[in-house]
Amino acid sequence: MVNSNTPGDAPNPMGMDGIEFVEFASTEPIRLGRHLEALGFSAVARHRSKNVLLYRQGSVNFIVNGEQGGHAQQYAQQHGSGICAVAFRVRDAALATRYANERGGWEVDSAPGVMELRIPAFQGVGGSLIYLVDRYQDHSIYDVDFVWLTGAEADQAPLLLTAVDQLVQRVQPGRLKEWQDFYAHLFGFRAHPHSVAGECLIESPCGKVRIRLETAAGERGDGGREGLHAVRLLAPDLPAAAAELAQRGVRLGESLTPDAYAPRVLHTLHEAGLVQFEMASQAD
């Protein structure tokens, strides 16, 4: 077991320390990349041997995977553009992997290529993967698997969005408790007090990862399938960000469902698939 606790002494069995990246599978990676750029992200690095780009804004790392073959493209072919993986930061990936296996997690062979890091991965919702990353300080995983693009960081636009606030996971009716137990059992997530009917907001023991579990509905256009369908990002100034995004041609809609955690939420749907980005004020 990983003996690491938060300052409040909440048990943190995996030694979690936030989100390292969110990975998108897309059959139209260029189009998705343009949408991210419109949201203020910049391409900062390219994979050494694959059609994979790293986009960054603030502390947010988004990976767009357009590589033919492999898990991401299989996911995109089956589900359309979407979130195919999320990487959790952990203090020690080897110890965290052992703990997850002992708790019945389904480890998946990530099949690293030549000169690539082997990052432990576990089966997540809807065929997605959960990676465990312990290289995120002085020497990150990107220093091994990616080549930094010249001047990319210097050319980054002013920050509109600074951090990941929530991942949004749709689940089949009647399975909210089942998925809540899954994250609690493996990672030590606990229920957050801000929840509404038909949803459950859970939070990691480190306090840096929130997942909103919501009941899937077939009329949403995805057949009611389970999966990670949205990511909510924080804006230091939501009205200013909305105005800037509108000037960039990003079509924004306001959340129509009650949300106890963030009273005002804007969202944009990537046109090339069911990839939804939500934006909430940093102060909420």
Rank of each mutant, 00 (worst) to 15 (best):
E67L: 10
L53N: 11
V168E: 14
D9K: 00
P11I: 00
G249R: 10
R98W: 11
A93H: 03
E254C: 06
A85W: 07
H139Q: 10
H270I: 05
E67Q: 15
V275E: 09
R91S: 08
C206M: 06
M115W: 09
Q57G: 08
S49V: 08
R31L: 14
E178A: 07
W179E: 15
Q74H: 12
R212D: 13
E102F: 00
A243M: 07
N61G: 02
R175P: 11
R91G: 00
V168K: 02
V2T: 10
R48V: 13
H185I: 05
L53T: 11
G198I: 02
E203M: 07
P158D: 06
S4G: 00
Y136E: 10
C206S: 12
P193K: 06
L54P: 02
V108R: 11
L54N: 08
G113Q: 01
A76H: 04
R251W: 08
F62H: 05
H35M: 12
G188F: 00
I19K: 02
R34V: 09
G15H: 04
V209Y: 06
I202P: 01
L186M: 08
E178L: 06
Y131H: 07
E214Y: 00
D259T: 13
V275C: 13
L274D: 15
Y261N: 09
D134M: 02
E37Y: 00
A25D: 04
A154Y: 04
D222Q: 12
Q123N: 05
V231E: 14
H267R: 15
G273I: 01
R251N: 12
A45C: 11
L269I: 10
I202E: 14
L32C: 03
A246D: 14
Y131L: 13
R46I: 08
R46Q: 14
G223F: 04
A72P: 00
E107T: 06
V275I: 13
V133H: 02
D165F: 02
V2M: 07
A197T: 12
I30R: 06
V147I: 09
R103I: 04
A191C: 04
V52Q: 12
R91V: 10
L132S: 08
R175M: 14
G218Q: 08
I202T: 02
N65T: 08
A96S: 06
K208Q: 15
E37W: 01
N61W: 05
E28Q: 14
V2K: 03
H194S: 09
A243Q: 12
A230K: 05
A243N: 07
L234S: 14
H192N: 14
K177P: 09
